[in-house]
Computed example of a mutant assay.
Amino acid sequence: MSTIIKPEHYHALLDTHKTEQGIKLIKDFFQENLSTELRLRRVTAPLFVLQGLGINDDLNGVERPVTFPIKDLGDQKAEVVHSLAKWKRLTLAEYNVKPGYGVYTDMNAIRADEELDNLHSLYVDQWDWEAVVTREQRNLAFLKSIVERIYAAIRRTEYLVCETYENIKPFLPEQIHFIHSEDLLQMYPDLSPKEREDAICKKYGAVFIIGIGGKLSNGEKHDGRAPDYDDWSTVAENGKEGLNGDILIWYPVLERSFELSSMGIRVDKESLLRQLKIEGKEDREQLYFHRRLLADELPLSIGGGIGQSRLCMVLLHKAHIGEIQASIWPEEMRRECAKLGMPLI
């Protein structure tokens, strides 16, 4: 059985009925705030894409997508999306979206290789969003401004939840702290990446870790990132690299760091070629998505994903993501969670 975090003296603050009401409250309110804050229009997204076009998100490059043959296409294979990181950019081009505007959608995915625990499920649901930017906006200051606006929307949603349910108290700090992954390594050189995240989140409450995907001074990556959507190899200020990152918070219910969003300024032609070379993935240059990007047929953009069930879990103070979403769990985990007061849907 996968590892379960067992918080002491945990009890759900809302019963099943109020939990379902709270999930709807959060999802309705947050997506409207996100749409307004970043000037995004809602679009309809696919559950699966054709294999071999380079459209699916490759995550860390080792996760296997769920695939199936399509009878009416001569058994050509389709893949259930891992996320819509590259599909959204194609959509921006198709809809001719102008700089300063973008799209968002409900992304539903199946990640069969996920290690199941309090935070990780086979079923992944996100608000995936993408906005067109100008060449001048491809910088760290602009990235930080977008992070702050997303975090403000999260805090407004927390306020609404606490006003609606008096027994839920706010815990998110007013400001989000920014730190580069290399600086984080220098602060905690003897800790693993996960331990560094725990340490910095416990100190500040909410953190955006910049520069994820490239190797640090110790020769290791803070975390993996596919080479063909986020721009993590751009040489930025102070010689550090990266125009992407993760939004994390310190979650007191589980006493650990908790990732809510992965996002970044997307690759342009130069950074795509550089990152494909770094990762030894130059063969991807011949795929549909990559050919269109290299032909300057796709707009410059910024985008990311924000976990829907994760945000609901945090704002409703739940200890297991299975208290928020319906998924498949090992029977032993279900029994253990029921004993711990966190029954899984």
Rank of each mutant, 00 (worst) to 15 (best):
T3R: 03
T3L: 12
H9S: 07
Y10V: 07
L13A: 07
L13Q: 07
L14Y: 10
L14R: 08
T16I: 11
T16C: 07
E20V: 08
I23M: 10
K27T: 10
F29N: 10
E32V: 12
S35A: 13
T36D: 15
E37M: 12
L40R: 11
R41A: 15
R42D: 10
P46K: 12
F48K: 00
F48W: 06
Q51D: 14
G52Q: 05
L53K: 13
L53H: 10
G54L: 08
N56D: 14
D57N: 14
R64N: 15
R64A: 08
T67S: 13
P69H: 05
D75F: 09
D75H: 08
K77R: 08
A85W: 14
W87I: 13
K88R: 14
K88H: 15
R89A: 10
L90T: 13
L92H: 07
A93Q: 07
E94N: 13
G100C: 02
G102W: 02
D113M: 07
D117G: 03
N118W: 12
S121V: 00
D128L: 07
D128Q: 09
A131K: 12
A141G: 03
F142R: 09
I146F: 05
V147C: 11
Y151P: 06
A153M: 11
A153F: 11
I154S: 04
R156L: 08
T157M: 03
T157W: 10
E158P: 04
Y159H: 14
Y159K: 12
T164G: 05
N167H: 13
L172K: 04
P173L: 06
I176F: 06
F178C: 01
I179F: 12
H180Q: 10
E182R: 03
E182T: 00
L191F: 14
K194E: 14
A199L: 09
K202V: 10
K203I: 13
V207H: 07
I209K: 06
I210F: 00
G213R: 08
G214L: 02
L216G: 03
E220K: 14
K221L: 09
H222E: 14
D231A: 02
W232L: 11
S233N: 14
N238I: 00
N238P: 01
G239C: 02
K240F: 02
E241T: 13
G242A: 11
G245H: 13
G245F: 05
I249R: 08
W250R: 00
W250E: 00
Y251R: 02
V253K: 05
L254T: 08
G264V: 11
G264E: 03
K269F: 02
S271G: 12
L272Q: 07
L276G: 05
K281T: 06
E285M: 13
Q286P: 00
L287N: 10
Y288D: 02
F289Y: 15
P299R: 01
L300K: 11
S301D: 04
I302A: 03
G307R: 02
S309C: 11
L311V: 01
L311S: 00
C312A: 07
C312R: 02
L315Q: 00
L316I: 10
E323G: 01
Q325F: 03
Q325C: 09
I328T: 15
W329R: 14
P330H: 03
E332C: 00
R335C: 00
L340P: 05
P343V: 06
